[in-house]
C-alpha cells in the first residue's frame, strides 16, 4: 500500500531529448522523461540499456552530447556534480562508494558538507559559529545513523560493515545532503528477499518522512512493482515505455525487451 504521492503541476526533474554516445556506442538515445514531485519513479531495463549513464548525466558526471536537463525548473545540463548536489540532488552508486577508511559517523558528516558553511580558517581556529555548526553536524549525522540502527557502530570503519548496512549507510549519507530528489542506483543488489522488502519499506518511509522524490534503478521486478508509482523502461539507450507499473508490465515492447522475440519489430 502506498501513500498517495504529492503531485504538482511542474515536474521536479525533466530530461529532454538527452543523447550521449561513447565513441561509436550510443548509450543514451533521445531520452525524455518527467518526474513528478513526491513520486517514486522506477527506471528499469536490461543490462547495458543506459540507465546508469542516464543517472550519470542527471548528476553531472557526464555532459550529454545533446539534450537538456532541468531540476525544479532550472537547467542543470552542464553543471559539475558538486553543483548539482548543492541544488538538491543526491545519489547512490551501483557499486557502493562509501569512504571506506572513514568511520560511519564521518561518512554521514561529510554528507552535511553543502548544508554547512564554516571555512578552513573558522574551523581550524575553532570560532564559536564553527564549533556550533560542528556540534549540529554531529547531531544530525547521529540522528540519521540511529535511523538505520548503526548507533553502536558509529565509529567503526565504514568499509568493514556488512553489505546491507553499507547500502543503507550510503543512502543515509545522501540524505544528509537534505536533497529534494534522491537517485538510487540498484540499491537492492545482492540482497535476499527479506532484505529487499525491508529496503523497499525503508525507501517508502524515507520518501514520506523527508518529502522526497525518488528515482530508482532496479532489476528486481516485485520490488519495482510494489514500490514505484510510475516506471520508465529503457532498452539500447532508448525509452520504450513509461507509465504506471501495471500498464508497463503489459506493454509488448517491454515484454520483448526482457524476453526477446524472434519477430523483427518495426518501430
Amino acid at each position: 500500500m502506498t501513500d498517495a504521492p504529492i503531485l504538482s503541476a511542474s515536474p521536479i526533474l525533466s530530461a529532454s531529448s538527452v543523447t550521449h554516445a561513447f565513441g561509436g556506442l550510443i548509450a543514451v538515445d533521445g531520452v525524455s522523461i518527467s518526474v513528478q514531485r513526491g513520486e517514486i519513479f522506477g527506471l528499469i531495463g536490461p543490462n547495458g540499456a543506459g540507465k546508469t549513464t542516464l543517472f550519470n548525466i542527471m548528476t553531472g558526471l557526464i555532459a550529454p552530447n545533446r539534450g537538456k536537463l532541468f531540476f525544479e525548473g532550472r537547467e542543470t545540463t552542464r553543471l559539475p556534480p558538486y553543483r548539482i548536489a548543492e541544488r538538491g540532488i543526491g545519489r547512490t552508486f551501483q557499486n557502493i562508494r562509501l569512504f571506506g577508511e572513514l568511520s560511519v559517523l564521518e561518512n554521514v558528516m561529510t554528507g552535511r558538507h553543502t548544508r554547512t558553511h564554516s571555512n578552513v580558517l573558522s574551523g581550524v581556529l575553532g570560532l564559536p559559529a564553527a564549533r556550533a555548526e560542528e556540534r549540529a553536524t554531529r547531531q544530525q549525522a547521529m540522528q540519521l545513523i540511529d535511523r538505520i540502527g548503526l548507533t553502536d557502530r558509529a565509529h567503526v570503519r565504514a568499509g568493514s560493515l556488512p553489505y546491507g548496512d553499507q547500502r543503507r549507510l550510503e543512502i543515509v549519507r545522501a540524505l544528509a545532503l537534505e536533497p529534494r530528489l534522491l537517485l538510487l542506483d540498484e540499491p537492492a543488489a545482492g540482497m535476499n528477499t527479506r532484505e529487499k522488502q525491508a529496503l523497499s519499506d525503508f525507501i517508502r518511509q524515507v520518501r514520506n518522512q523527508y518529502h522526497l522524490t525518488i528515482v530508482i534503478i532496479e532489476h528486481h521486478m516485485p520490488l519495482v512493482m510494489g514500490l514505484c508509482d510510475r516506471i520508465a523502461v529503457m532498452n539500447f539507450g532508448q525509452l520504450i515505455a513509461i507509465g504506471v507499473p501495471a500498464a508497463v508490465q503489459r506493454n509488448p515492447a517491454v515484454i520483448e525487451a526482457y524476453l526477446g522475440s524472434r519477430k523483427f519489430v518495426d518501430r
Binding site: L61, P81, Y82, A85, E86, L102, G111, H113, V124, R173
Partner: peptide, 26 residues
Amino acid sequence: RLERVRTGRALIAIREDELAAESIGI
C-alpha cells in the same frame, strides 16, 4: 584541527573517493 572540521573531512573524502565526494557536493 583541520582533520576534525568540515574542510578536513572534505579533503579526506576526496582522497577516499573523489567521485563520491563530488556527488555529495564537495
